[in-house]
Design a protein around this nucleic acid. Structure first.
Lengths: 198, 198
DNA sequence: GGCTCTATCCTAGGACCCCTAGGTTAGGAG
DNA sequence: CTCCTAACCTAGGGGTCCTAGGATAGAGCC
């Protein structure tokens, strides 16, 4: 019988599509195997476990996502860059909810080589810190600001994807407002002021 | 043989403990049954499915959480209230990660009666909107602000719980700074300004 | 073309999970 | 003491992840 032509890349690719369709948490090796018309066990020649497949998917998605963000941010600075970053971020989440969910998974230490090989984490950090340069923050405020942005972006998209926003108020408009509010927070960043007591 | 004395309440309670130990997504009916020294099938007299158990856990956790937040916010206003809200929120997440994860699940429409019966959602909305009163926002900015706060709180705690913050910078300090930054965003809330173009 | 050899894909099966159908029995109501 | 309703059981089907070991397609070499 003809071979299915399995490859790590092809397996990850269809896993990505499946994750976007049914949700990352419901991504199953059996479903991937079915998609190729192959038995579950056959996948284990290419991927050592479901965990590894998920990790590979996570890294791949991370690369895709930061590519999009990098393209959007390129040549912009300040509020422009922030808005572009935010727009590209949410766009990716809405287009690829399953892959985005993958990017949030904790990757086992045994797969550390894979994550350093993929430069997604480093690139994401570079671009994020670079985008904040215009606001003139210094450490540790810079790290605090990065954490604030990541948190808000991730939280908003996660809640939206989970159907957490019931109010009829337009979700896109709220997002735009949130980005503006973050810009305001960054420009009025709370510096240490002299305490009035003691 | 002696009866185990199963009850919906007792089942949900041990499910909550298990979820905090092993993670909400790894919460299993079999594990709950084992904990009671009972067969899986025996639980189905009290709970119709794993999904229902998870939903009940979610609602219970939501009530616990908003109770803590309400107590912390009581009698405070403005920045004080915001800080108290944020503190109680993160405290609950750190103390009960599994239960908190439960509160983020999408509950099936068939269980709608359960969620309206539990007033957790309504109370949460009331307390959140009430806390923002001091900032003098009006709709739709009020809803936008609520969404911003929820997003940031949830995102930060989710990332922290997932081990997403690798930088040595103290996580508590970043959180405090984020809350201050949100306060700044709320006080400098972006109002609609007249456009300069057109 | 025929041969060899390896990666590819298979069958078989164990462990765990969710859930259903239907039987037994503990323990309260009368 | 009997009855009856739950509470809990056994038996079993279907799904998933994963391992061990066997068969073979198809590339490379003579």
């Amino acid at each position: 019988m003809a071979r299915a032509g399995l490859t790590v890349e092809r397996i990850v690719a269809t896993a990505a599509e499946l994750a976007d369709e049914v949700g990352f948490d419901k991504l199953t090796l059996s479903a991937v195997a079915r998609h190729f018309g192959v038995k579950d066990a056959s996948l284990y020649s290419h991927v050592s476990s479901l965990g590894e497949l998920r990790a590979r998917l996570a890294l791949r998605a991370g690369e895709e996502m930061i590519d999009g963000i990098a393209a959007a941010v390129a040549g912009r600075a300040g509020k422009d860059a922030l808005a572009a970053f935010a727009g590209a971020y949410r766009e990716y989440v809405l287009a690829h909810p399953g892959r985005y969910a993958a990017t949030q998974m904790r990757i086992d230490d045994s797969l550390r080589p894979l994550v350093t090989e993929s430069g997604a984490l480093r690139r994401t950090a570079e671009i994020t810190y670079g985008m904040l340069r215009a606001y003139g923050l210094e450490e540790p405020d810079l790290t605090d600001a990065v954490r604030l942005l990541r948190s808000t972006f991730h939280g908003y998209c996660a809640l939206e994807a989970a159907g957490g926003f019931n109010d009829p108020r337009d979700v896109q408009a709220s997002w735009d407002k949130a980005v503006e509010a973050l810009h305001a927070a960054l420009t009025h960043w709370p510096r240490q002021k002299e305490k009035t007591d003691g």
